[in-house]
């Protein structure tokens, strides 16, 4: 898939090629502006591709969009709720507009509001609810449908840790029903916990893809050591492993033995130090650049 926006010289997507299997949660991971939303919007038939072929559920997104649209639902990025409408109105009326019977729409609305722990707010106007609850309404509008494929563009943006976990649990349930989810996020912990497969996109290019386990196996090192402070130079740290600067700290990817040596040295120099196994976040930083603090923050840290 290639996408070049009008009046833009730089392609938003440069020949990105991906396959998403049915019944999976597939996550597009990347920094802001990497091209995740563009990919998702093309696949969800909201945006025309500039070149290439994209098939969704066996149909072409350009010539057979109507066929695809019967089987999909989306949570658009950073949308809003409709002022005085309640969570119940949002979900129930969306289902009716999609063609569901009133009885089915009622059942599904009740179920999804319960799953997302919103029953006690279901009759309150959306504009009196918190941002997190409004985001949950938007997720509920897609999750409640009977769509085979859900496109979720940063569905947990701005949610607290507990709400995020609640949504993860609902998404896992959907997946167990055999439905497919394509989601974008820049929360790396979310991608690691939720996904069957992950693709990392950077500057419109597919950097890597695979299951979180496969991706982790691409990192040679097994341990990361975080050292805070300025008492080490990059050259000092390079003797212990591969250093990456993240905001006020250094992260060194290394093996168990050298992690022990670095920890002792850091304590000797009176630095704060922590040791943990490498994660998808380390791979991500490795792939898209270590200078950017925003891109590496997990949702909980944020």
């Amino acid at each position: 898939m290639v996408k070049v926006y009008h009046k833009s010289k730089t392609p938003a997507l440069k020949k990105v090629s991906l396959t998403v299997n049915r019944g999976q949660i597939f996550t597009l991971l990347g920094r802001n502006g990497a091209g995740k939303t563009t990919f998702l919007r093309v696949a969800a038939t909201q945006l025309l591709p500039s070149d290439g072929k994209v098939e969704v559920l066996g149909s072409d997104v350009v010539s057979e969009a109507a066929k695809i649209r019967k089987k999909i639902a989306v949570v658009p990025q950073e949308g809003n709720t409709i002022g005085p409408l309640t969570p119940w109105d949002h979900v129930y009326l969306t289902l009716l507009a999609r063609g569901m019977t009133r009885a089915d729409a009622r059942d599904r609305t009740r179920k999804v509001l319960d799953q997302l722990e919103m029953t006690s707010y279901q009759s309150k106007p959306a504009d009196t609810l918190s941002g997190g609850l409004r985001q949950r309404i938007r997720v509920a509008m897609a999750v409640a449908t009977d769509a085979e494929l859900l496109f979720l563009d940063e569905p947990t943006l701005g949610l607290d840790a507990i709400s995020r976990r609640r949504i993860w649990s609902v998404l896992k349930d959907i997946c167990r029903e055999g439905r497919t989810i394509l989601l974008t996020t820049h929360y790396i912990d979310e991608a690691e916990i939720l996904s069957d497969n992950v693709a990392v996109i950077n500057s419109g290019t597919l950097v890597t893809s695979g299951s979180p386990k496969e991706l982790l196996s691409k990192v040679d090192e097994r341990v990361r050591v975080d050292v805070t402070g300025d008492r080490f130079t990059e050259d000092d740290l390079a003797r212990y492993g591969r250093p990456v600067r993240i905001a006020e700290r250094w992260r060194v990817l290394t093996d168990n033995k050298r992690a022990g040596e670095l920890t002792i040295e850091a304590v000797r120099r009176n630095c704060d130090v922590s040791v943990s196994p490498v994660s998808l976040e380390d791979l991500f930083v490795d792939l898209v650049g270590g200078e950017e603090e925003n891109a590496t923050m997990s949702g909980d840290e944020k």
Partner: peptide, 22 residues
């Protein structure tokens, strides 16, 4: 642009004519 309602209904069985009339 703000509610993203059109995006929501484009990626659904609702047709453009249905949306316009709505």
């Amino acid at each position: 642009l703000e509610v993203k309602l059109q995006d929501l209904f484009v990626a659904s069985p609702v047709s453009q004519m249905g949306y316009l009339l709505g």
